[in-house]
Amino acid sequence: MNLEHPASRRGFLRQTGLLGLAVSAATFLPRMAYAAWNKAAFDAKTIADVYKTMGVEAPTASAEVQLIASDIAENGAVVPVEAISKIPNTTQISFLVEKNPTMLTAQFDLGPDMLPEVSTRLKMAQTSNVIALVKADGKFYTATKEIKVTLGGCGG
């Protein structure tokens, strides 16, 4: 139980910067120093726009993609995720958080010497589906998992 939760949750949201979406992210985005960074994809506010800007067409949910993550986040500011693809010729793995202000969080382009397994840690504003998006032979596949962000306390 945590009575100061609403306040602290706000604090957390402020801390992670995921609250206050009325503020346009674009206003505060830096000048892009690197042409390679896909600004349009990272700025996109809907899944459809993310997919469009990444050139993703009709991704299919696949059991060959595994998204490993805790069901409940221990800390919304640090949520470990791991994606493993069993699909041959996997060349790219991305992580998307549906309910974050901008959904695309990380995209990994894998060279031929890589195993199709990557892990990182994400910030999540609230309980949300997280998507692992895999590209193999030009086609896209997904695995989706709901990760719960909770107030905590009260257990046991």
Partner: peptide
């Protein structure tokens, strides 16, 4: 490997 990241990487 090359990666592109957004703001929500921890």
């Amino acid at each position: 490997m090359q990666a592109q990241w957004g703001q929500a990487v921890a």
